[in-house]
Design a protein around this nucleic acid. Structure first.
Length: 280
DNA sequence: CGTAGACCCTGCGCGC
DNA sequence: TGCGCGCAGGGTCTAC
């Protein structure tokens, strides 16, 4: 469910509600997420600490923490929402929700909780120092809003590789944060066929694609993300970029550029939508 | 080596 | 109304 824009929207909404707050309690209700939750480590690295900042790397939300009884080194709560995760702050008297697998009680009131029906999410606590050498982050590629992400980056990354451009664009070693929706949308914006081989894309097309990726992500962030079923920000608000989707989930509907009916097919196990007339 | 497919899990919408 | 099927925004592992 959440790609980069949704995690960024979540980060921005939670930041003012969490920075400066202290974690007074940790509850692990369901350890069996994509990776088992380690209650002892979570307690050790979270309890009694104060939130200093919220960051994002790829589709991971990073909640930085300092302090605690024994002056421990800074730690970071890492949360990945998987497909169906929702992270929100709710009042203390809010009863535990179905699929509320993990929560932190905040000193002074409120509870940060993860609700995740499909349990593809990840929650872990790591030392802040050396975070990017952790296995979850060590092999991640460039952030799409970094200065180094451009057509040239894509062109060089594609060198020596084969296969269609859409799975390439979704490969986090190439560029992070671009999932099925935004890969579909970026290719539509750049008028590139999702099946086009990466070996048959010239510099001009790579440039166009890099611009399209950045634009579609920025537009989605500005509109609060895409809510297909269950994405919300940290206060429970839905996004509304779904009304701006030009290709995703629009099989049979007219292309907004040329009017031809959009088509759907399955690529690398995921639904892909494209305009057979103007995406080449 | 890189790429394709299965798999993890629950919920929902659809067709019968 | 009820049931079974297919599908869903992610990532990782195995098999070629």
């Amino acid at each position: 469910m959440p790609e980069l824009p949704e995690v960024e929207v979540l980060r921005r909404s939670l930041e003012p509600r969490l920075v400066g707050r202290r974690i007074a309690g940790v509850t692990v209700a369901t350890p069996a997420l994509r990776e088992p939750l380690d209650r002892a480590t979570l307690e050790e690295r979270l309890l009694g600490r104060e939130v200093t900042a919220l960051r994002r790397r790829s589709k991971y939300l990073l909640i930085d923490l300092v302090g605690g009884p024994s002056e421990p080194p800074p730690s970071t709560l890492v949360v990945h929402l998987g497909m169906s995760g929702r992270l929100t702050v709710v009042p203390d008297d809010e009863p535990p929700a179905r699929h509320e697998h993990f929560s932190c009680r905040l000193a002074g009131g409120g509870r940060l909780r993860l609700v995740d029906p499909r349990r593809f999410g990840v929650v872990l606590a790591l030392p802040t120092a050396g975070l990017d050498r952790d296995r979850h982050f060590a092999f991640l590629g460039v952030e799409p809003f970094a200065a180094s992400f451009d057509g040239d980056h894509l062109r060089r990354a594609a060198r020596g590789r084969r296969g269609p451009v859409k799975p390439f664009l979704m490969d986090a070693r190439v560029v992070v944060g671009v999932g099925n929706i935004y890969a579909t949308e970026a290719l539509w914006r750049a008028a590139i066929h999702p099946r086009r081989s990466v070996g048959r894309i010239g510099a001009a097309r790579w440039d166009r694609l890099a611009v399209a990726v950045r634009e579609v992500l920025a537009d989605a962030i500005a509109q609060g993300g895409t809510t297909l079923a269950d994405f919300t920000d940290g206060e429970g608000n839905a996004g509304y970029f779904q009304v701006s989707l030009a290709a995703y989930d629009r099989e049979g509907e007219p292309c907004r550029r040329c009017g031809a009916p959009l088509r759907r097919f399955v690529q690398a196990g995921r639904s892909t939508y494209f305009c057979p007339a103007c995406q080449r």
